[in-house]
Amino acid sequence: MPNDKKSQKIVDIIQNAARKHSLFVLAYGTGCGAIEIPPTMTSRYDAERFGIRGMATPRQADVLLVTGYLATKTLKRVIRAYEQMQDPKYVIGFGSCTINGGMYWDSYNTIKLLDKYIPVDVYINGCMPRPEAVIEGFIELQGLIKDGKANGATKYKENIDWYRANQKKVIKNWNMPDYNW
């Protein structure tokens, strides 16, 4: 797909530049990785330098940061929060647990592969990733946004049936409102 800079319209370039420099992160400490978010956001590492900022509700947020493993109970809430976010939206998988289950690979209550359930744009590995790694991950995401390649949300919409089937496999009582895309 020729998604490089030349084929983008001028409007897209402006939009992508703005999106790149302004990432509102949903303040949802899903897993134990949430402990490294305060250092990332506060004075030592200061992610706000890159336009990264916490937002309280999914309506206003751009980035869903899945900090670590997801218990099935949390997965349901994460999906709901993700679907309440407004396009364009991105997901960052944080820590080894999102990649392959990490040290909870044989736990009966945590999911192992995050991108089977929601599309992930950037993974940050480590247990836990240091704040530097987190910022590195965000910069990676910014690069993807700039090139217009961070299209996880589009992927999700196109393959909603597949994702939904995976989600319902884990979440036994699916009493969420179904969204029409």
Partner: peptide, 28 residues
Amino acid sequence: GYLHRGFEKLMERRNWLQSFTIVCRICV
């Protein structure tokens, strides 16, 4: 229960020393 990982179950499956990597993750 949003963070339930079943640590205590996992430790039944790991030997005494392996469990060390797990206990510290109980309280972040």
